[in-house]
Design a protein around this nucleic acid. Structure first.
Lengths: 102, 102
DNA sequence: ATAGTATATCAATAGACATTGATATAATAC
DNA sequence: GTATTATATCAATGTCTATTGATATACTAT
């Protein structure tokens, strides 16, 4: 009988699902670019979307997806909203990924 | 004017696209499980698909997706087809991912 | 208050791709 | 040859989600 952890062990299987959720979020070109852009520090939306070949509203949408998963944080300053990496969580997700594939 | 490498530098931008292609492939729960299953060594399809909650033909399809991207290799032995990790390429892809996000 | 700017939300559409069921191919055994 | 097993392919469907255009909200300045 098969005893493959990522399939039979419920805890590990759930961790795999969470890792897949993370991957789904970063496996989108524009979101990946956003994360790269934010590596150089916090940026407001108006600094982000002209770098992408993307409309303002779609950029905002992708940012909200990233934020909902906890990969970025945001701060409002006057009219502008500054987004920055939640690097702690990002690195944690990458480590979890490595646990499955390395 | 913005000088963000992953957006403005063509070579880096293309590498990002390839990394995203890789992520799209592993951001599917069953494919991720297949990769994990194969970590313990080569397996024929008939050993793989009963571990997944998946039909034979769909498992075969996901394996072909993984193979097309070079994440697994296959060898035919009689009736059976044995799949194994192409670990060299898999680790390379993970390193490329780290270059963008670490 | 009005105007202008920055960001977010919403409804509708489109596109990508996982899934299904049926069937095909290929190898083995009889 | 026929039957059986293992795997792959194909067409059709469904599902998820990126994208679009329009509009709303929220803040600032005049």
């Amino acid at each position: 009988m098969p005893k493959i952890k990522c399939c039979s062990n419920k805890k590990i299987s759930n961790e795999l699902k969470k890792t897949v959720d993370f991957l789904k979020i970063i496996s989108e070109e524009n979101r990946m670019r956003i994360l790269c852009i934010l590596k150089s520090g916090p940026k407001c939306v108006c600094e982000i979307w002209p770098n992408l070949d993307l409309s303002q509203n779609l950029t905002s949408h992708h940012l909200s997806v990233l934020k909902e998963f906890g990969l970025v944080k945001s701060k409002k300053q006057g009219l502008k909203v500054f987004y920055e990496l939640n690097d702690k969580n990002l690195q944690k997700q990458l480590i979890n990924l490595d646990l499955f594939l390395k």
